[in-house]
């Protein structure tokens, strides 16, 4: 079967700095895949290359079998993207944000109406659809942006830290939405997160990224087995990504996995 997400030796360099270093990755259809890693590890850069937002330095990337480099438009048609930054338009209402975004994908008028009502109702925003997004709280805006990425029924959804800065209730709401999404169609989800309990609660397999490389990959159970004595994902994470701040370039706490500088 064609994997939903596939990367081969995917590399991104900014000048002399290698942000993503020869990453190989294969995510099957219907998976909810977690991308973990410290700040600056290269998660966002990896996702941006996979979604055709950033030019690939070298290597290959395919989404649902479509090559990101040669057919970016084909890839964008099947892709849902919820970027790390908040990107909805503050001067537009919730409904306008959804409607205009749907038109970028060529969703026709009738389907748009039905779909927007369904998605906004699911996130509790339907009643406030006519309000400007500038009047929304951070949590409401996040919820809006997550369902905006689903407006065209994508086959693969990339979420880059969708629950950052949310209170526990809002986070649970988003978890429910994501769990819901998995039940229905064969949607594949790639979820970047810093919250390890989030990955434990939602993800089947996870990859731990550090300094531009995947340093560990597997189900959470598998990863725990790899690290003797680990009680939870946090122990595993610290083991692979180290204890110190990456930006400081200080020596690492845990045993080093094969990592290039």
């Amino acid at each position: 079967m064609t994997p939903a997400i596939e990367a081969r030796a995917l590399t991104k360099r900014f000048g002399a700095f290698t942000a993503v270093d020869a990453v190989d990755l294969r995510v099957e259809e219907g998976e909810l895949f977690g991308l973990l890693g410290p700040n600056g590890a290269g998660k966002t850069t990896l996702v941006r290359m996979l979604t055709g937002l950033l030019a690939i330095t070298s290597g290959e990337a395919r989404i649902a079998g479509v090559d990101v480099r040669t057919d970016p438009d084909g890839v964008r048609q099947v892709l849902g993207v919820v970027p790390q930054a908040l990107t909805s338009d503050l001067d537009l209402t919730a409904y306008e944000n959804m409607d205009i975004y749907a038109r970028y994908f060529g969703v026709d008028r009738g389907a748009r109406r039905v779909r927007i009502e369904e998605l906004l109702t699911r996130t509790g925003l339907w009643e406030r659809r006519k309000e400007l997004v500038s009047k929304f709280s951070g949590g409401m805006r996040r919820r809006l942006e997550i369902v905006r990425g689903l407006i065209h029924k994508p086959r693969v959804l990339f979420l880059d830290e969708p629950t950052i800065g949310l209170d526990p209730q809002s986070r649970l709401v988003i978890w429910d939405i994501l769990r819901d999404l998995r039940k229905g169609d064969s949607l594949t989800i790639s979820l970047t997160t810093h919250y390890l309990e989030e990955a434990e609660a939602l993800c089947g397999r996870v990859a731990i990224v550090d300094a531009g490389r995947i340093v560990a990959l597997g189900t959470i159970a598998e990863l725990k087995e790899l690290v003797p004595g680990s009680r939870n994902l946090e122990d595993v994470f610290i083991h692979f990504a180290g204890r110190s701040l990456r930006e400081e370039g200080a020596p690492k706490g845990g045993p080093p996995a094969r990592r290039g500088r």
């Binding site: 979604t51 055709g52 937002l53 438009d73 964008r76 048609q77 892709l79 993207v81 970027p83 930054a85 990107t87 909805s88 338009d89 975004y101 970028y104 994908f105 060529g106 942006e145 905006r148």
Partner: peptide, 12 residues
Amino acid sequence: GVQEAYLSTPLR
């Protein structure tokens, strides 16, 4: 950073 939203759509 708002353009990231529409650059990932099939807009040409």
